[in-house]
């Protein structure tokens, strides 16, 4: 029951307020008598705030923000300079590396050429030597062959002569025998 009366009370609040409003000057917002005081203190407080903001806060904040901006810009510039330098030295390093590798490949090709030339020279020299040796040995073999042929012929001649002298008296001369043998 108590609750119900409370709920009813709430339901009638607007009418209570309205009734109260009619008794006085309505909403406090409409009470003209408070206007001068509100306006006066509004002007005073807002002026103080305005002066505080424009004389102290804003210049101070502006310098801080600008200082930071300058610092950031400075840092960015510095970083860019360092970056440029780094890329420059990287390029230098690359160039050096390239020239070194070029030089080394040159050295490799030239030494390869040299070594192949040396080996081919050596080979041709040894070939010559071998050919000469072969030729010499061939000559020697030929000489020896001739020699042995002669020896064989002489031996044959001697043998033929001795055989022939056993069967015939009239022994032909050596020249004749050798002519026949050939």
């Amino acid at each position: 029951m108590k609750l119900l009366s409370k709920i009813l009370g709430i339901t009638f609040i607007p009418s209570i307020v309205f009734a109260e409003g009619q008794k006085s000057a309505g909403l406090p917002q409409m009470d003209i008598s408070t206007f001068p005081s509100q306006l006066f203190w509004l002007v005073v407080t807002f002026l103080i705030l305005y002066v505080f903001m424009s004389k102290y806060v804003i210049p101070s904040l502006r310098t801080t923000i600008e200082e930071r901006k300058d610092k950031i810009l400075g840092d960015i510039n510095e970083a860019e300079a360092v970056n440029n330098q780094a890329s420059l030295s990287l390029k230098e390093y690359d160039d050096k590396l390239n020239s070194a590798s070029n030089r080394s490949s040159e050295i490799i090709t030239s030494s390869k050429e040299e070594s192949s030339k040396y080996t081919s020279d050596l080979k041709s020299k040894s070939d010559d030597k071998i050919n000469k040796m072969i030729e010499e040995s061939m000559n020697r073999i030929k000489l020896q062959q001739k020699d042995s042929e002669n020896q064989v012929r002489e031996a044959t001649l001697v043998a033929v002569k001795s055989i022939v002298s056993k069967y015939i008296e009239n022994v032909p001369s050596d020249d004749e025998i050798s002519k026949k043998l050939n």
């Binding site: 005081s37 509100q38 006066f40 203190w41 407080t45 807002f46 705030l49 505080f52």
Partner: peptide
């Protein structure tokens, strides 16, 4: 002119 320091003025002072 009534320029009394009121609760409104007090809260203006609080705000600033």
């Amino acid at each position: 002119v009534d320029i009394s320091f009121t609760n409104s003025s007090l809260f203006m002072v609080f705000a600033i």
